[in-house]
Simulated assay, not measured.
Amino acid sequence: MLSVYSAAEVRRGAFVMGAFGRVVGLAMAGVAAGTLVQPAVARANEVAATAGASAAGTMSLPSLVAYVRGGDIYVSKGGSEKRLTSGGDQARPRWAPDGKQIAYLKGGLLWVMRADGSGQRRLTTRPAAGPSWSPDGKWIAFSSLSCSGGPGVYRIAVKAKAQPEVLFPRDCRGEDLPAEPAPVTSRAGSLSERLAADDAVAWSPDGKQVAFRGGSCESVYDACLSVGTVATGGEQTVAAYGGGSLQNRGFAVVPSWRQDGKKLAWTAYQEGETQAQNEPVHLVEYDTTTRAKRTVGGAGDREMAYVDKARAVATGQNAGGSWVMVVGLSDGTRKPFRSGSQPSVQPVR
């Protein structure tokens, strides 16, 4: 069980976000804004994929990795790759626990498809951000506008035609769902500005908790990352920025659990009181027992997903564009895998 940070603990080491994050997030609710590819970037990535393909070498992983390039979803274990979608406008693929389906965003809405790209179907008309499967595969959690006017977390049944149900904020449970805003599928601004409003969520491996950006902690801090308990609706703060005596600004977004639930990773950014306290986009790994944090990967790495206890995949820079990198969690090694971003690892059964 994660513990709530005291103000003193947060001052000593919590990563947290500035006031701009919440404002941008409300305007961009329901979208994985962090890495949606702009047309020019998409073309550059396609060039990088061709010109730098040899950089991936013959690396092989134990299961497929889904990732996005040029607005479409691909899968690969290393060497060859398969394109699952066409037409662009796709984002945030997430594997089902049994490895047989993928949830993803299309046009800012939640869709699912089989692992081979067939059977594509839309689940919601409500704009969505960063989906995550429940461990039993029956539900998908996603972020969208809540009754409070900020981002909230919903779940929707995968098999049946159903309406989304509110998980967080707890006070929105049982309330009428707010009107559906128009989905937004592209973003301007720097990488850190786009990432700041990314509302991707992550369901814990035991099914009891969901990690998400924002939450009730935003009544104290300018921006924060929360872990909410599904059964009760209670929330705990694991990262925070600005407010509450914190003289900084930044964000903690795109959470990801290790398969055993003992580690939680996220993408972070910080502007401190002095230039020496600034921390560009980077990856943080958090021990859910000791609450210790450490930086993993390299500068600019983001959107981490665990392969196993020793390795992860993350988006980083390589060959002049965004690449999925294989990151050694103990030795800090970084090896290029495929051109693309937003990786998700197929569970090994």
Rank of each mutant, 00 (worst) to 15 (best):
K293G: 04
T267M: 06
E273K: 13
W257Q: 02
G298Q: 10
E303G: 14
E279G: 08
G243F: 03
T290V: 04
N248Y: 10
E285V: 00
T295N: 00
M304I: 09
G298M: 07
Q270L: 07
N248M: 12
V238Y: 10
R302P: 07
G297H: 10
L264C: 15
A265Q: 05
Y241C: 07
A312Y: 09
T274D: 13
K309E: 15
F251V: 09
E271T: 01
A310P: 00
D287V: 06
A239L: 10
R302L: 11
G298C: 01
Q277R: 12
V254H: 10
G261F: 01
E271D: 03
A305M: 03
Y269W: 12
R258S: 15
G243R: 02
L264W: 07
D287Q: 14
V296Q: 11
Y269R: 04
M304F: 09
V254T: 08
P255F: 06
A299V: 06
K263H: 11
E273D: 12
A292W: 03
A239M: 15
W257N: 09
W257P: 07
A292C: 01
N248C: 03
G261H: 02
Y286M: 01
G250V: 00
D301V: 13
V238A: 04
R249L: 11
V254F: 01
L283N: 09
Q259C: 05
R249E: 02
V307M: 13
G261I: 09
Q277Y: 04
H282D: 07
N248D: 15
T237A: 05
E285A: 03
S245I: 05
A265G: 06
H282P: 04
V253Q: 04
Q270T: 08
V284K: 01
D260Y: 04
A299W: 06
V284S: 05
R291V: 08
Q259W: 13
R302W: 05
A312I: 14
R249W: 13
S245Y: 15
E273S: 14
F251S: 12
N278C: 08
E271W: 10
G242E: 06
G261C: 11
Y306D: 11
G300D: 14
G250F: 12
Y306H: 02
S245Q: 03
L246H: 03
G242I: 07
T290F: 02
N248P: 05
V281F: 01
Y269D: 12
G250W: 13
G300Y: 05
A299M: 12
G272R: 08
V307F: 12
M304S: 02
E279C: 10
L264N: 07
W266T: 02
Q277I: 09
T289P: 01
T267I: 13
V253P: 13
K262W: 04
R294V: 11
V296Y: 11
A299D: 02
Q259H: 07
G242R: 08
E303D: 11
A252E: 08
D301T: 14
R291Y: 05
G297Y: 06
Q247M: 14
Q277S: 11
V253K: 11
S256L: 09
G243S: 06
E279Y: 07
G298K: 14
Q275R: 01
V307P: 15
E273N: 01
F251R: 10
M304Y: 08
S245G: 03
